[in-house]
Amino acid sequence: MNLEEFKQKLSNIFSTFKKDKEVLSVDELKIKYLGRKSEFVSMLRLIGTLPISERKEAGKIANEFKNKIEKLLEKLESENNQPKNYNLDVTLPGKKVPVGHMHITTQTIREVADIFKKLGFYQVRYPEVEWDYYAFTALNFPEDHPARDEWETFFIDSKPINSKYGARILTPHTSSGQVREMEKRKPPIRMINISRVYRRQMSVRHLMNFYQFEGLVIDKNINIGHLKGILDFFVKKFIGPDTKYRIRPYHFPFTEPSFEVDVWLGKENKMAKDGWLEIGGAGMVHPNVLRAGGIDPNEYSGYAFGWGIERNKLSIGGINLEDIRILYQTDIRFLEQF
């Protein structure tokens, strides 16, 4: 046999392959044309009988032939591939992964903290069981003044147990953190204190413990304009971009001037009074409070605001919670809704 005959032979095999591929399966074709007993394999053995000068060329041709067949077989295989049947029911419910729920109070605390952190505030927390001194005296509440009644306080001691700090109470407001913060560091101060506070009250609108957040800014040249700037930012972020608010003069012993802030929620809102929701108090820090914190009121000025977490959140969001006592009643059917 010479190279020409070798070529011819392979070409003949390819012709029969083309006919066979219409009738045989891929596996059968593989065995017949490339298997150990195939004509092709026996031809490979014949290469050794060719003249030495032609063997290399013959090997190359044989390889090309093999590649060609393999490619065609691959193609056939992919064309003929039958789908496997997994019996998949895509409408079955997904496997249950337990869903955890963060308490709405936690969610709101974080929401508030995040708003203020954008403005360079840092978050702190001060004692809930507090000295009368920090909750009242240092905040410029006169001794035994009727103003103290408005705060409806829980007491631990019936009389002072410390000559400077007085009796222990459950703090009725986060404002008790003001003088503590001033004692801790010098201005500039930009604190947001979010803590649990206590009032001697319990109704559909009042909780005996709830959370407040207190902002305190002390620096040189701070004025009410800056406080209004913060208000603009906060009400827009917390309630909505078009929120209107108003400032009403009010009285707090620890701020001067003092006022309350109302936001407009619309007449149909049940939690609001005539459309206005009172979100909390604010004002310029009273000089006596600055002095109690060791800060010279002639050098520095500051503002403070203290607002409730839960009631404000529940009033604005369309949550429709008319009895807020459920917040602390650990009823899973409530907790799982948030």
Binding site: G120, Y122, R185, R190, N223, G229
Partner: peptide
């Protein structure tokens, strides 16, 4: 109070961690 213009805080941001 409605006649007092709002201002942004322009002082130094305190270097305090949460």
């Amino acid at each position: 109070y409605q006649n007092i213009p709002s201002k942004n805080l322009d002082g130094e941001i305190p270097n305090v961690e949460d």
